[in-house]
């Protein structure tokens, strides 16, 4: 890897003496906020104020999305490399939390991997100057590093973005601004992603199959400048994947079982219709590249159509309950 000068690059992804990143790694966790009611806009902003003084970003439409300031975590660890090669990762990982419509919480950890700028570990202030960049000492092949990361078992070895995204979720969920009442029992979904970065590469996406429930793996391509867009894509994918899984695997089967056993399923059905269904808002408005990525994903998964079908099923179940309410003893 050459010590690329940044003169030719219009938007340097890393500061002056840094190398161009070759890979982007990340992990997104998605769950419900542990609070009985949805949070107001101001409560969402207060909850996302993880670093006093740093700005919280807030967008109101099409859904209200509040994002915490980036947190910086220093790492120095061995990489888990598939097949052959070894490497040591030194640098900083960024993480932030996102609240959508005062209901859904996401924790994201991400880092850009670049070849080391020196043969040995440098002073920390060097790494701190490039937040979110992890330098790789040694010369493992990028595709081996990528496979090693994506197929890594839990508990994680190597660069442990899982723990960092998990920690930010726990930190937010423990906040004394929440009443810690679970509005609907659902799982936390994990999306682990890795992007191969190359100058002028077009953004593309591939969703891999995973046998582990609530765990998804995404492979992406793009240029280093695309990295923020790819991170956002993964967060949007994770949110929509969580919505679909929650209605399909939690709410509908539970309501069907409740109806079969003469229990009242209305609370969770209405929760799905009023709180979850309105959150289905594919991010195609954000940019042409985002639109292309999303549509490529949709063309294979048909997520929107599946979600519509589930929402229709929920309406059916609600209507059935209205016509023949469960027996009350």
């Amino acid at each position: 890897m050459s010590h690329a000068t940044t003169d030719r690059d219009p938007i340097p992804a890393v500061p002056d003496d840094g190398a161009q990143p070759l890979l982007g790694f990340g992990e997104v966790r998605t769950c419900l906020i542990q609070n009985l009611a949805g949070l107001s806009p101001s409560a969402s902003v207060a909850l996302m104020q993880l670093t006093p003084g740093s700005p919280v970003s807030k967008v109101d439409r099409p859904t209200r999305r509040v994002v915490s300031p980036e947190q910086v975590t220093g790492v120095d660890c061995r990489l888990h490399v598939a097949r052959e090669g070894r490497g040591r990762a030194i640098g900083t990982v960024l993480s932030h939390a996102v609240v959508t419509n005062g209901r859904i919480l996401q924790g994201t950890a991400h880092a850009a991997l670049a070849s080391a700028t020196a043969k040995e570990r440098r002073e920390w202030r060097h790494y701190l100057r490039q937040p979110g960049v992890v330098e790789v000492l040694g010369s493992p092949k990028p595709h081996n590093v990528m496979d090693g990361y994506l197929t890594d078992a839990s508990p994680a070895r190597g660069l442990d973005l899982a723990s960092i995204s998990d920690r930010i979720i726990d930190e937010v969920q423990q906040s004394d601004r929440l009443d810690h009442t679970t509005a609907l029992r659902t799982g936390t979904a994990v999306v682990r992603w890795a992007a191969t970065l190359a100058q002028e590469a077009k953004p593309t996406v591939g969703i891999a199959k995973s046998d582990i429930p609530n765990f998804h793996v995404i492979r992406l391509n793009g240029s280093p400048e695309d990295l923020p867009m790819l991170i956002r894509f993964c967060e949007e994918f994770a949110l929509h994947e969580w919505l679909l899984t929650t209605v399909q695997d939690v709410i509908v089967p539970r309501a069907e079982a409740d109806i079969a056993r003469d229990r009242d399923p209305l609370d969770s059905l209405l929760f799905a219709l009023n709180e979850l269904a309105p959150l289905w808002m594919p991010p195609t408005h954000l940019s042409p590249d985002m639109k292309a990525l999303w549509e490529a994903m949709e063309s294979r998964t048909h997520y929107s159509r599946l979600f519509e079908r589930q929402v229709a099923r929920i309406r059916d179940l609600r209507d059935q309950v209205k016509i023949r309410p469960p027996r009350r003893f």
Binding site: C31, L32, D170, Q173, H180, T182, R185, T186, G187, T188
Partner: peptide
């Protein structure tokens, strides 16, 4: 104790 509470809270989000 805080770590224990954190575990119970986390499980309560998922388990009845």
């Amino acid at each position: 104790p805080a770590r224990c509470a954190q575990l119970f809270l986390k499980l309560d989000r998922e388990f009845d």
